[in-house]
Amino acid sequence: MKRRVLFVCFGNTCRSPMAEAIFKKLVAERGISDQWDADSAGTSNFALGCQPDNRALGCLARHGLSSNHRGRQITKSDFMEFDYIFCMDTRNLSLLEQFSKDFVNAKAHPLLLGSLDPHEELIISDPFNGGSREYERAYEQCLRCIQAFLSTHS
């Protein structure tokens, strides 16, 4: 049975789809795609059905990655269906903790992805109001955290 990981940011346009793409690439490179499934979502309905931000797609392309993800908002069922839910910042963590507080039987509980960062950068910086440098920083943060996660969970 596959373990499932969900990455969550505000709009599901930048950080979370980038993290999803990074995760999928790393599990494929390790030959463990049959053991893992990944998705991403937003805490808002800001970009429902939309592709990731063009700057996020450009950053992924510079690293040999792509994404065909379409924006979606997190649902109650996600807490029952996913094994891990990783948030990008404390604002989204707080929203998810409020949203999930009544789920007694939740399978997953939200955690900060940055809590896994070997560089101890707790917050995955939001690149939305920036340029390629900010997207690259968010990419590198996600990459470090996901590598750390996979080194202890695969």
Score class of each variant (00 low, 15 high):
residue 125 S to H: 11
residue 112 L to H: 10
residue 110 P to W: 03
residue 80 M to C: 11
residue 136 E to L: 08
residue 102 D to I: 10
residue 48 L to H: 10
residue 17 P to E: 00
residue 49 G to N: 04
residue 48 L to C: 06
residue 11 G to S: 05
residue 27 V to T: 14
residue 129 N to T: 07
residue 126 D to W: 06
residue 110 P to K: 07
residue 107 K to A: 12
residue 94 S to M: 12
residue 19 A to E: 09
residue 61 A to R: 15
residue 4 R to Y: 13
residue 133 R to A: 15
residue 69 H to L: 02
residue 57 L to Q: 03
residue 36 W to P: 00
residue 52 P to C: 00
residue 63 H to A: 13
residue 54 N to H: 15
residue 145 C to D: 08
residue 21 A to K: 03
residue 68 N to M: 13
residue 106 A to H: 07
residue 136 E to N: 11
residue 35 Q to P: 02
residue 149 F to I: 07
residue 64 G to F: 09
residue 104 V to W: 14
residue 39 D to V: 06
residue 97 E to M: 11
residue 42 G to Y: 01
residue 116 L to F: 08
residue 27 V to N: 00
residue 103 F to H: 08
residue 49 G to E: 02
residue 31 G to W: 02
residue 103 F to T: 07
residue 18 M to Y: 08
residue 139 Y to C: 03
residue 100 S to P: 00
residue 23 F to E: 02
residue 120 E to G: 12
residue 87 C to L: 02
residue 88 M to Q: 08
residue 80 M to E: 10
residue 103 F to V: 06
residue 48 L to N: 10
residue 26 L to P: 04
residue 1 M to K: 06
residue 94 S to V: 07
residue 88 M to C: 06
residue 119 H to V: 10
residue 14 C to H: 04
residue 134 E to S: 12
residue 33 S to C: 07
residue 84 Y to Q: 07
residue 100 S to V: 02
residue 32 I to R: 09
residue 6 L to A: 03
residue 2 K to R: 13
residue 31 G to Q: 00
residue 76 K to M: 09
residue 4 R to M: 11
residue 146 I to H: 05
residue 141 Q to W: 08
residue 137 R to Y: 15
residue 121 E to N: 15
residue 10 F to T: 12
residue 8 V to C: 07
residue 146 I to W: 03
residue 64 G to L: 12
residue 68 N to T: 14
residue 23 F to C: 04
residue 78 D to W: 05
residue 88 M to F: 07
residue 50 C to L: 11
residue 67 S to D: 01
residue 133 R to S: 15
residue 60 L to V: 10
residue 107 K to P: 05
residue 140 E to D: 13
residue 115 S to P: 12
residue 85 I to W: 04
residue 56 A to M: 08
residue 129 N to E: 09
residue 29 E to K: 08
residue 56 A to Q: 07
residue 11 G to N: 01
residue 146 I to F: 06
residue 56 A to N: 09
residue 11 G to K: 05
residue 8 V to M: 01
residue 112 L to C: 02
residue 13 T to Q: 15
residue 24 K to D: 05
residue 16 S to F: 07
residue 5 V to G: 11
residue 66 S to F: 08
residue 30 R to D: 00
residue 5 V to A: 10
residue 106 A to T: 03
residue 7 F to Y: 08
residue 122 L to R: 13
residue 136 E to I: 01
residue 58 G to L: 14
residue 23 F to G: 00
residue 136 E to T: 13
